[in-house]
Design a protein around this nucleic acid. Structure first.
Lengths: 146, 146
DNA sequence: ATTTAATCAGATAAATTAATCTGATTAAAT
DNA sequence: ATTTAATCAGATTAATTTATCTGATTAAAT
């Protein structure tokens, strides 16, 4: 294995980045998102449902319904999605799995990992979806559906 | 979830760090390791078996047998354990799960993650088990078995 | 020789995560 | 009104990871 985020979280992040590229007022169906990102439709649908429950995403039922961001892209940070899906354990637990890792009882890589973890946290908090928009559009447009 | 290393890998790293704290010529049984690190005996046994197959660890069968490092602690780096158990996908795959993430086709956090990933790699390659020895001893001695 | 305590090997079980399926509800469009 | 296409909800299945069990082999100690 070796993973930072669960598949659920990866898909959630991708889907939310996708929603952030839509023009104001537009929405995207689970089917559209699934096709554009090449991820299982029912799975992305479930994930967005859970994000809907947490107000990060909104949905509209019925014909021509779909999902859209729960608030302005300029007000959403990736960490919110991560927290909603995977939680913040990554930023609290010992990277080597030792119990009670802390400054007073550090594992062999405690300090190094601490710095890294802060950088990771920063990566997820310093920019908003709005600031990622250009890059998101570029990346999503290059995904080739198998 | 949200994990860097699998449980298997965490336990493997802990066990190898434990072996590195033994005095020259000594070995430790799966039972001893299990008790000292508070991890399931059969599991750590299996993991060390797989590391034995890869020559990172050696074992001696029979009464008063056990496991010991396959080479000098000064010649083993954490990355070798990680590679043997989890592989190096962490250092190759996109952190957001996008396909074909590369400088020419980057995801929104590609550059930031690239730097982080290098630091993580460095954390696992810059020091040997020998250099971690003091810290390993200190940490292991503070583990309280439940 | 026998006992004991260890690794080793393979099967199995349990738990978690990932993915899919089915049916109900909702609402726009015809 | 009916059809159609969407979310929603919950159940189910599949896959993977984590953990345990059983028995065989090995070798030191008595």
């Amino acid at each position: 294995m070796t993973v930072i985020f669960s598949k659920k979280c990866e898909y959630g992040l991708q889907a939310v980045l996708y929603l952030s590229t839509l023009e104001a007022g537009a929405m995207a169906s689970a089917d559209e998102i699934s096709k554009k990102l090449d991820i299982p439709k029912e799975f992305v649908s479930k994930i967005l449902q859970s994000l809907t429950a947490k107000k990060l995403v909104k949905s509209k039922k019925g014909n021509s319904g779909g999902f859209y961001l729960g608030k302005a892209a300029a007000k959403i940070k990736l960490i919110e999605i991560v927290e909603a899906i995977d939680g913040l354990a990554l930023f609290n637990n010992c990277v080597l799995g030792f119990p009670d890792c802390s400054p007073g009882n550090p594992c062999p890589v405690h300090n190094k990992w601490g710095k890294l973890r802060n950088s990771a946290y920063n990566m997820l908090t310093s920019e908003t979806l709005e600031q990622f928009k250009k890059k998101s559009i570029a990346k999503i447009n290059k995904i080739i559906r198998k």
